[in-house]
Amino acid sequence: CPCGYYNDPTHNCCCTPGQIQRYMNKISGPLLDRIDIQCEITPVPFKDISQAQPGESSSVIRERVIKARDIQTERFKDFKGIHCNAQMTERMIHQFAEPDEASINQLRMAMERFSLSARAYNRILKVARTIADLDGSECVQVQHISEAIGYRNLDRGDWAERRMY
């Protein structure tokens, strides 16, 4: 929003819904469609930072990412110019990230509920394939699809109307 405090838990946003909508409309839907991962991040209060439990170490995450990249390198070794899931063509998406029936149903519900585009559908499948690679999974499963859908916050038709106080 124009004031910068939309959905901030520690500051009040002083913008009207109309101002927020106009501000959000400055970013076109087709542009948002081309962003694979869209996450809304709210500031974390200091008391929560200081009491946070240690998470997964960077070295463990790094190893998982290297393994996922190795999987992708192997997957695309016969495809000139393709090195990772983000570069997959639509044909490759059907070959390597084809969802099962439960995942298709979940995708259908998300597409209808959030008014997502066909481009968003392909982006979700690419991100889900990457999540599956990070998980060490041969197939894209419903939990991978769920997580990928969760990363499509900003191109949902109701984003600017969802105010949290």
Rank of each mutant, 00 (worst) to 15 (best):
Y6D: 00
V142H: 02
Q53N: 05
A118T: 05
N153M: 05
C3S: 07
Y151A: 03
V140W: 10
N122I: 07
M88E: 02
N153P: 00
F79R: 06
P9E: 09
C14Q: 14
E138W: 10
E74G: 01
I35V: 15
R113E: 14
S50I: 14
K77P: 04
I145P: 11
R119P: 06
R119D: 02
T130P: 03
D36L: 14
Y151I: 08
F96K: 05
L134P: 11
C3E: 12
Q87G: 01
N7P: 06
D48L: 09
E112Y: 07
P45S: 03
V60C: 01
D36I: 09
I41K: 06
L32T: 00
Y121N: 05
A120Q: 05
I104M: 00
P99E: 09
T16I: 04
K26R: 15
E112P: 05
E40L: 12
D78N: 11
R75P: 02
M88T: 05
F46E: 13
N105R: 15
R123E: 06
F114E: 12
T130V: 09
G150T: 00
P45M: 02
T73S: 09
V142K: 09
I71S: 08
I66E: 09
C14N: 12
G4V: 03
K126F: 13
R113H: 14
D70G: 02
Y5D: 13
D133M: 01
F96C: 07
A128W: 08
A68E: 06
Q106Y: 06
R129D: 09
A132P: 02
Y23A: 03
R75S: 03
S58W: 07
I37A: 13
D36C: 04
L107F: 01
K126M: 14
Q141S: 10
F114I: 01
Q38R: 08
C14K: 05
Q106I: 01
D133P: 00
K126S: 08
C84N: 05
I35A: 11
N7S: 12
G18T: 08
T10D: 13
S103E: 00
C15Y: 10
S58I: 11
R34K: 15
A102I: 07
A52S: 14
S137V: 07
A120E: 07
M111F: 08
T42F: 04
I149M: 06
D78T: 14
H144A: 10
A148W: 01
D158F: 03
Q53M: 04
E63W: 09
D8N: 15
K126C: 08
M109H: 10
Q21M: 04
K47W: 11
G4C: 13
S58A: 15
A148T: 05
H144V: 07
Q143F: 02
C13G: 05
V44D: 00
N7C: 12
W159C: 02
Q87F: 03
T130Y: 01
R91L: 10
F79Y: 14
D70P: 04
D100K: 02
D8L: 09
K80A: 14
H144E: 15
E40F: 12
E40W: 08
I131S: 08
R62E: 07
S59Q: 14
N105H: 10
H11E: 06
